Simulated assay, not measured.
Amino acid sequence: MGYYQIDCFKIHLTILRILGVWPTENPSPCYIYLSGLFVFIFTVLYVVIYTMNFYFLPQQLEIFAEELIFYFTNVGALSKALAFIFLRDKVKKMLEMLESDMFQSDNPEEIKLIQKAKEKSSFYWKITAGLSVSANTVNVFLPFVVHVVFNVKLEFPVCRYSFIPEQYEAIFLYPAYLYQSIGITSHMLYNVNIDTFLLGVMFLAMAQLDILDRKLRKVTDVCVHTNAPSGSIDKMIDDENAVAEIIKCIKHYDAVSEYCKLIQEAFSEILFVLFSSGSCKICMCLFRFTMPAETKYFVFLTLYTVVMTLQVMVPCWFGSRLIEKSSQITFSVYDCDWTPRCRRFKSNLRLLVERANRPITIRGGKMFLLSLATFTAIMNSSYSFFTLLRHMQSR
């Protein structure tokens, strides 16, 4: 059938291939070497230099807080890039499952549900990519243009690089600025494409649960002899057809559960770092609000805090939606005409209900459940850390 579902990830995987974390089936030695070099220089080494820079920072709390805000973002991007490299096989297996016969359909209503999930994935990528590219352009390219045109002092877009001696600042200004610009742009692209890729695979999982919900409500529609007496051939044929359909639904539910398990295995570390660093970023943003700064910096800080909050909230929101849809299976199964069916059908129905009583969930690092309750806990912990820092600052 070709790429029926995963073609909505074409743009994600193309960009990640350019960034060196998603090679083709048989990558050339040249691609392997260049991609590894790119990831090391602009992702791994980038964070190492950033970490080293803290030792040379001036002993000013507001400067230290500003550097920490971007530092957690860069650590998050590093974790996403490395996870995609080392857990690539699980991601490929996940995509193969989406193209398996179990997840395909010829029913127009079910195809419409899948198409809707694909459109939602593309919509979130366009919104996220548009906002991120615009913000990155303002942060990286606009200061350079202003510097060239109006001869304004050029500030580094991300990190101060305080370890560079003052007498060599003029020499390293443009190379360091270019290095930071490429690094922060690649990190932005990692964040955009991996975050929206995660949302996309979750949208398709929820679409499969919607399809399963529809199938269960109509699982007895194959029974055409509604008035057939018990023990008759027509009654037995209807029962056999109904049993075959409920078994298909059980296999479909098992496949969706296995697919969501693959999502967790592939993105567990990413989600753990996302939630951990998200809490730290929000805390440091709140803490920086308590210190003096220019108005334009407070505007930036406000927008950055909102974006970081949404970065944590959006996957938690759809994680809750996934739990709700999987829990709905236990109710939709009773909407079919199950009472006149045979004992074997009812046994299989009860088996499906027992399995569905444990909702499908996704966890980050086997600790954080992807749900709105986790988002609330993260916001509470951010505020608790903030009050602790304020208390230490006032002493």
Rank of each mutant, 00 (worst) to 15 (best):
V333P: 09
L286S: 13
E245A: 06
I11M: 13
R341Q: 15
C223Q: 10
S121R: 11
R214S: 12
L352P: 13
K93C: 03
V314M: 02
L82T: 07
L216P: 13
V222E: 11
F144S: 11
V140R: 14
D335Q: 15
R390G: 07
C283A: 08
A135W: 10
Q60S: 12
L310H: 11
L209Q: 08
F287C: 04
T128I: 03
Q167D: 12
Q5V: 00
I282W: 04
P29L: 02
G200W: 05
S277C: 00
I329F: 04
A293Q: 15
I323A: 12
L34F: 11
L142N: 03
S381N: 13
K118W: 02
I323S: 15
N107P: 10
R288G: 01
V146Y: 08
D89M: 08
F42W: 08
Y3E: 14
L212M: 02
I360S: 03
E67K: 07
T339C: 06
T196D: 06
L173H: 06
W125C: 08
E110V: 03
N26F: 05
Q264N: 10
V312I: 03
C249K: 14
V256S: 08
L142M: 04
Y297V: 01
L189Q: 11
V21L: 00
V145C: 05
S35K: 10
E269A: 13
S100G: 06
A242Y: 07
